[in-house]
């Protein structure tokens, strides 16, 4: 009986001491901040398109930090999912089709002679990339446009087109070579397509 009590006593004592140490350390060495949200936010494409179901990229970053799936961002596509998976050390999963599909880079263009100057697109634009005033023609600053599509819906006269950013001689770049004995690898498509790199 005494041994049992002694054992329990010693364990309790140890626990108390260690608990005290940790408690003290927790107060003494307390640090603020949750940088993981910032890190996640930095990886998101900042289109602020809301396709993930959140009003902007930062809210989605916060949602991811709270455990939401990382595959809800179509503008970022697989590259962003991969980067997030690396950061959070989770499995990279394919893009969730419910939130849209990955498309080529696009910008909004207003057909200016059809624009009635209603300013609705200006209000919708999350990055202030549309210029114009009431009853004046509006225009999109192409450099600032993130291609988020948000201005298309509100336009009462449907004068906004999403135009794919084409390739010019200045922006053109070499393709990635096809790899080892490219011609001989055609038959083994399954071997390469299904794999998700780590």
């Amino acid at each position: 009986m005494l041994t049992v009590l002694l054992a329990i006593g010693i364990l309790v004592l140890l626990s108390l001491i260690f608990g005290a140490i940790l408690g003290y350390a927790n107060v003494r060495f307390h640090v603020e901040g949750d940088p993981i949200v910032d890190q996640i936010d930095a990886l998101l494409p900042q289109t602020q398109c809301g396709q993930c179901g959140h009003p902007g990229c930062r809210p989605y970053a916060e949602a991811i930090a709270n455990g939401e799936a990382i595959n809800h961002c179509p503008p970022g596509g697989q590259a962003t999912i991969q980067a997030l998976a690396d950061l959070l050390d989770v499995e990279a999963i394919p893009l969730d089709g419910d939130h849209g599909t990955e498309t080529a880079k696009r910008v909004a263009v207003i057909r200016e002679d059809e624009c009635i100057g209603c300013t609705k697109c200006i209000q919708a634009c999350p990055v202030d990339a549309i210029l114009g005033a009431a009853k004046q023609m509006h225009t999109v600053i192409a450099d600032e446009c993130t291609g988020c599509d948000l201005c298309v819906e509100p336009c009462p006269v449907d004068c906004i087109d999403m135009v794919e950013v084409g390739v010019t001689a200045k922006t053109w770049s070499w393709d990635k070579p096809q790899g080892i004995a490219a011609t001989s690898l055609n038959i083994i498509a399954t071997d390469r397509q299904t794999e998700v790199a780590h």
């Binding site: 900042q46 990635k176 070579p177």
Partner: peptide
């Protein structure tokens, strides 16, 4: 391979700059 990678890196840099800008504006 190098040319492709160089341009990919440049693109990535530009994309970062752009997304930072978009974030700021937002």
């Amino acid at each position: 391979y190098y040319r492709h990678t160089k341009s990919s890196i440049r693109e990535a840099r530009e994309a970062t700059v752009k997304s930072d800008l978009a974030k700021q504006r937002f």
